[in-house]
Design a protein around this nucleic acid. Sequence first.
DNA 1: ATTTCTGCAAACACTTTGCAAGCTA
DNA 2: TAGCTTGCAAAGTGTTTGCAGAAAT
Lengths: 160, 160
Amino acid sequence: MPDESTLQQALRRFEAFLKAQKLKKTPERMAVLEAIYAHNGHIEAAKLHEVLQERHPGLSLATVYNTLELLSRAGLVLAHRFDTGKTVYEKALGRYQHDHMLCQDCGRIVEFCDPALQEIFSHIEEAYDFEVHHHALLIYVRCRKSHCPHRPSVQSTQAS
Amino acid sequence: MPDESTLQQALRRFEAFLKAQKLKKTPERMAVLEAIYAHNGHIEAAKLHEVLQERHPGLSLATVYNTLELLSRAGLVLAHRFDTGKTVYEKALGRYQHDHMLCQDCGRIVEFCDPALQEIFSHIEEAYDFEVHHHALLIYVRCRKSHCPHRPSVQSTQAS
DNA sequence: ATTTCTGCAAACACTTTGCAAGCTA
DNA sequence: TAGCTTGCAAAGTGTTTGCAGAAAT
């Protein structure tokens, strides 16, 4: 599944969502969706806003937030609020289901996936008669043992 | 293990931590520690500050935050930042290891424990050669199937 | 034509910070 | 005594909100 079609799929879904909610399809909203889907990994609202200025100068930060909220409700974007106070977003389609490890030594965020989690969810659904909607698992780790791929020092707010 | 000794243990550990870090043992810091350990469940900084006014009038919010940071570093307090923007804290000692389910329908936060998580951590430590320090697992659920103990409607910021 | 959106800027809520006075070691 | 801490209040941060003009249906 190439990245191209993932965006198409997201666009279609978003349009359907807007129509179903009697909301309007605006260039700004579509631009935000495209911008997130063009970005791999996490991105925060301010950065997204900055990136959007290139092709859509004037698009406001308020609209970015507004749209992220809609996209989140539409299930097209995931929001994470690690420990920084900032919320980061990422596309929800075209990504394998994953969670995050936060390296306490170098600040690096590493994704991982463990199928055992699904079993935990199944277990919970039965034990509590709840319906598991989504989740967020953060594992705080230390890489000092050896080879954290992004050693201490630098670690800027990653360029593009 | 009665609750009483848990506080004692925490106090000892905190004193040791302060000494080790060449920090000072102050009445304010001890008061904050006691206040958290006297509270069961989550509590936010403002509420903790409010509670502390009873026995320690004048103790400032800044000191509460300052101390929570120290306690967190000392491993005596856990901080969670669910989705509300507010950070909530809870004592780390004298509690079984647990995670949280957040009911999307009624806002209730339910604790649970699943030993399978430990296996995931072991797996990760081996696979990545990381040292797992701590974690936070949030599962967003819906209770509409039936008996969420705290139905919709009310749901105030729980009294004491 | 109606209703929703947008951009702007002010408002917000929580947390952090700077500084002088006070307390710990 | 020397240096960390405290309380206060002001400053920050990221996010939300109110409103008038602009755009979508």
